[in-house]
């Protein structure tokens, strides 16, 4: 893009300078407007909102369950999921509020329902005042609401990924693909990253530690969350993460530059994963313990010596 204002020389002329400034501001605002309407930025916000609400949901539901546990400690044993427990608290209120009718249709087995009702009769929990209950209940309702919002965010991320980056979505999965995009700073950035960088996105701390000290570099960052990586035996994970990263890099480029679905990427990935699983079925033989520390990068010590010499 050529800048129409670039050739004007404003020196000495206050009016033309203000004209130029006015035009520049308008052009800048237009750039900002354009940049802010990119759909992948909304996706990045959504995945971050999803991760935020996950954290907050966990904290809130755990606290509500813990608090209600003072009153009805046995319930937490029988209902493992804190959000489900919050739903029960909302519905039943105090311990006395639990009855068979209320517990039906919540995915609890007959045995569990019976156990809850028995436990209620001889609970070791303490008294709960109305004021206490009001707060616990309201906290529970916050948790329940949050979990609803989380679900909606999840659906949004899924559908947005299908729309914006169908190939990345296919290869990495919607949430992982979205997280990679968030880390990279948008689909355009992800499409320009080398696969080796994509492989360790999210493991920056381990990477820089490795570079500084000569320790072994990380094999996977965000990609560890990919089922094919974390479900694989340890010795295969590096190879699998590398393969997925390679395909994500290709997928991101197809999504960004061409924008059409390309089934061969996923097919190639599956084929390659299959052959890794086949070829590296057995764990590698144990390496004899290495005595020497891996060689350090020379930068640091050499620099230090120079520093002392100068003084």
């Amino acid at each position: 893009m050529a800048n129409p204002m670039a050739s004007q020389a404003p020196q000495g002329d206050a009016k033309s300078l203000q004209d130029l400034r006015e035009k520049s501001i308008l052009a800048a605002e237009e750039t900002i407007r354009k940049a802010s309407s990119r759909p992948d930025l909304h996706l990045v916000q959504a995945i971050q909102a999803l991760d935020d609400s996950d954290k907050f949901l966990n904290i809130t539901a755990t606290r509500a369950a813990e608090w209600y546990g003072l009153h009805f400690p046995e319930l937490a044993q029988m209902v493992q999921d804190n959000v489900a427990l919050c739903r029960l608290v909302l519905a039943a209120g105090k311990r006395d509020g639990f009855n068979a009718e209320l517990l039906q249709g919540r995915g609890l087995t007959e045995k569990k329902i019976e156990a809850i009702l028995t436990a209620k009769e001889r609970s070791k929990g303490g008294e709960l005042s109305d004021a206490d209950l009001a707060r616990v209940r309201s906290l529970s309702s916050l948790a329940v609401e949050l979990s609803g919002e989380r679900e909606k965010l999840n659906e949004y991320v899924e559908s947005a990924m299908h729309r914006i980056a169908p190939n990345v979505c296919e290869v990495a999965g919607a949430t992982i693909g979205a997280r990679l995009m968030a880390k990279a700073g948008g689909l355009d950035r992800l499409a320009t990253l080398p696969a080796s960088t994509i492989q360790i996105l999210g493991a920056e701390k381990a990477l820089f530690r490795a570079l500084r000290t000569g320790a072994r570099p990380p094999k996977h960052g965000i990609l560890f969350q990919h089922e094919a990586v974390h479900a694989a035996p340890k010795w295969q994970r590096g190879k699998i993460a590398r393969t997925i990263a390679n395909k994500v890099a290709i997928a991101a480029r197809v999504d960004y530059y061409r924008g059409s679905e390309e089934a061969s990427i996923k097919a190639g990935l599956d084929k390659r994963l299959e052959s890794i699983r086949e070829k590296y079925k057995e764990p590698p033989p144990r390496q004899p313990e290495r005595r020497e520390r891996p060689q350090q990068r020379r930068d640091r010590p050499r620099d230090r010596r120079q520093k002392y010499r100068r003084r």
């Binding site: 800048n3 670039a6 404003p10 130029l20 400034r21 605002e29 900002i32």
Partner: peptide, 27 residues
Amino acid sequence: VEKVARQRKNVIPYIVDARDPSKYNVS
């Protein structure tokens, strides 16, 4: 742009890459 360029008459903003001075070589 909002807080500085708009408020100050002696500031001209450019949202461009500094690798290409021809885009803002006005003076």
